[in-house]
Design a protein around this nucleic acid. Structure first.
Ligand SMILES: [Zn+2]
Ligand SMILES: [Zn+2]
Ligand SMILES: [Zn+2]
Ligand SMILES: [Zn+2]
Lengths: 151, 151
DNA sequence: AAACAAAATGTTATAATATTACATTTTATA
DNA sequence: TATAAAATGTAATATTATAACATTTTGTTT
């Protein structure tokens, strides 16, 4: 994400928080910016390292608290299979999504596939199960890396 | 899983390993038994604790190595979202599966839903993505707990 | 059977991820 | 301004996972 997109995105986050009467404090904003600026998903401790440049003595709770807030408000997602965090591409509306995670380049593609969601919902219904948090992460190789690998 | 089922299951695992020319050693078998005997998914360190009864000074690598073997041969599954392991309900054939994980009682239901798999496959195709390891875990409330909770 | 190589296990240490507990500061609002 | 709630600071610790190297066991060749 480039500088302009970043500013725009953070602006949107600020607007959302104002609307929801929650506070996107400097620290939370800083963590969000770090995540959005990164090419790849960041782990909590990678964020912690990068925070040292803008915060004096950041400790794990500093990061984990900010992450918790950002997760709660749908501004970021946690990728359970790789213990890392990425920005949400459309935080304005509630949604479930699926993630295509490339093992080769680390890139992640967040998709919102209605057919997948429908099939999951059917299975839930059949089992009488009420899902509160779906974890749908496909680990594999992205199209770019498939090309590179075959050369 | 009761004692009889356990024996049967372990017997099947032994047969599979023999067929595949890999060794289900005593330790590996012990770890498998612990996982199969448990009511709920076990974490690596829960297994480690329980191993103390049959092994003298078990250390983390003892458990993680056994888990790695059992995972490789499809005898168990790892639940990424809760860092825990469960026995596979049908290790005889290669498969991808989905897990319904109850946050209330901890129970896990492994399903193999073709509609879900088909929808995932379509999405992968559309993105040109080649999945090697799908992580499909639905966290929520099982039907039993929904009933209990509403009382 | 003896020699050898490969596989499995033992052992110690450490890395990586995440939370608890309690003190202090900042912010909102009465 | 007083108060309570929210956010942050700080130190310690818990939990999950791996690295590195020594030793033992197993399977295979001679
Ligand atoms: Zn999203
Ligand atoms: Zn890639
Ligand atoms: Zn299975
Ligand atoms: Zn339940």
């Amino acid at each position: 994400m480039n500088k302009k997109q970043l500013l725009e995105f953070v602006h949107q986050a600020e607007a959302l928080c104002k609307q929801r009467k929650c506070r996107l404090t400097d620290q939370r904003k800083r963590v969000l910016e770090l995540i959005l600026s990164a090419e790849k998903p960041l782990t909590a401790y990678e964020i912690l390292d990068q925070l040292r440049e803008s915060v004096k003595n950041p400790a794990p709770p500093t990061v984990y608290r900010a992450l918790e807030f950002l997760l709660q408000h749908g501004l970021i997602h946690k990728l359970e299979s790789i213990h890392a965090f990425i920005g949400c591409t459309h935080p304005d509306h509630k949604h479930t999504s699926q993630f295509l995670i490339c093992n080769d380049c680390g890139d992640v593609n967040e998709i919102e596939n209605k057919a997948i969601e429908k099939s999951l919902h059917s299975a839930e219904q059949a089992a009488g199960f009420k899902t509160s948090h779906p974890v749908i992460e496909l680990l594999g190789t992205c199209s770019q890396c498939q090309l590179s690998n075959s050369h």
